[in-house]
Amino acid sequence: MITVSNLSKSYNGVQVLNLENLDIPKGQSFGLVGNNGAGKTTFFSLLLDLIQPTTGHIKNKNVLVHESEDWKPFTSSFIDESFLIGYLTAEEYFYFIGELRGENKSDVDALLSQFEDFFHDEILGKKKYLRDLSKGNQKKAGIVAALIGNPEVIILDEPFANLDPTTQIRLKQIIKHLAEKQGVTVLVSSHDLMHVTDVCERIVVLEKGEMVKDLATSEATLKELEEHFSN
């Protein structure tokens, strides 16, 4: 689904990301871990054509990301709160995204009804603007908005941070379900090794912009990761 070749990004001659080859097949749940400054968000930004690669390219379903916009209809993402429109209510925001993705109100409502437990009665029907919600609730709204419109690729940056334990567990189920049952390619980054190993079939470790590990998740993965990061 996603093919990366010779991708690198430098700022003023300092390289922050350098990935020679990376293939993410359709329907894989893909985890990205690394310390601060490892290049996770840079990679996701390149994937969404928010920054320009210094060298190389990314292909999303055979579309060259930095040349064509044709990847947009089947790709959705939530990177940070700047993806939310602060002066809308959660419903208005969902319907807006729905309209952009060619879904009508009832389509969106049908999708939202699956996430009532996820929202915990704190988001829908609250008569509050998104900018007035707490960080955690903002994140929930952003993540659910990324699921609208049957995307084939979903990119979530640090989805577990700021979430309460109940929602973390529910989110893990959602992501697993998306990848296994619906064949959606899910890309997730996290600082929480436990969550990533729970959710992802494959985990890539970045360090200073380089890929240092590429693991197929197994029983031993968590241990291996913990060892890696304790040195």
Partner: peptide, 13 residues
């Protein structure tokens, strides 16, 4: 500007 990144990665001509 506050949500420009979203607009740019959304399905918007």
């Amino acid at each position: 500007s506050e949500y420009y990144k979203m607009l740019m990665s959304q399905n918007i001509p």
